[in-house]
Design a protein around this nucleic acid. Structure first.
Lengths: 111, 111
DNA sequence: TGATTGTATCGCTGATTGGCAATATAGTGA
DNA sequence: TCACTATATTGCCAATCAGCGATACAATCA
């Protein structure tokens, strides 16, 4: 891949920042199972409505979610399933690191 | 993939945050081409030494870089090439989004 | 030893932002 | 119209953090 210019690096960084927040990741994870209304997310996450709404807005603005009104409610759903590839890669790395630390500490029970 | 628990979401978010910074991305991009000393990075990035050193520390602590002394200098190199997969995925999405916005604005020259 | 170069750390500041309570807006039904 | 529910927005506070100058630490050489 060609070298990214400063503006592009900014855009990539801004995108990663969207994913750099536990509440937003929890929302994505929940929506991965099923589309949800704001209230359903508020309940299942145990977070405040204002905050869930704010974080949903950030995820939506980043182009990660779809949104549609359903009567009185608003239903959010995943627009970009590719983001979960990102999470898989990161989880894989974190897991490997954890195993490595454990092996070094406990004397390599190794896998 | 199984649902991640709050602690795991925290860890993933913390990892993404490391990538959510243009200077750090620039460093990774530079190191992808070749291992570099701190001073070489300072020159090629046009950033202050203190800041480059700080950001290198953050990348190193995240397990993304290797570090070795070479005489008076310290040479950093990529430890986890997998991170570039992440960047590719993000770049791909940003590019698609940009194309979509352009098509909608200019009347679908399409692709 | 002291001088020089390369790197890391410290203290600070300004900017960003997650979370909150309060309030505004939107849709539904009476 | 009014009451009710669902969602979004606003103003605020505390925490985080990139970037900076100054300085400490480390390695080399004279």
């Amino acid at each position: 891949m060609a070298a990214l210019k400063p503006d592009q690096l900014d855009a990539v960084a801004r995108f990663f920042r969207v994913l750099a927040e536990p509440t937003r990741l929890a929302i994505l994870q929940e929506l991965r199972r099923n589309p949800r209304t704001v209230n359903e997310l508020v309940e299942s996450l145990g977070a405040k409505q204002a905050n869930v709404s704010k974080q949903l807005g950030i995820l939506f603005d980043a182009g990660l979610l779809d949104r549609k009104r359903s009567g009185n409610s608003v239903v959010y759903s995943i627009r970009e399933p590719a983001i979960f590839e990102l999470c898989e890669i990161v989880c894989g790395k974190l897991k490997r690191d954890a195993e490595k630390r454990y092996a070094a500490f406990a004397g390599k029970p190794r896998r």
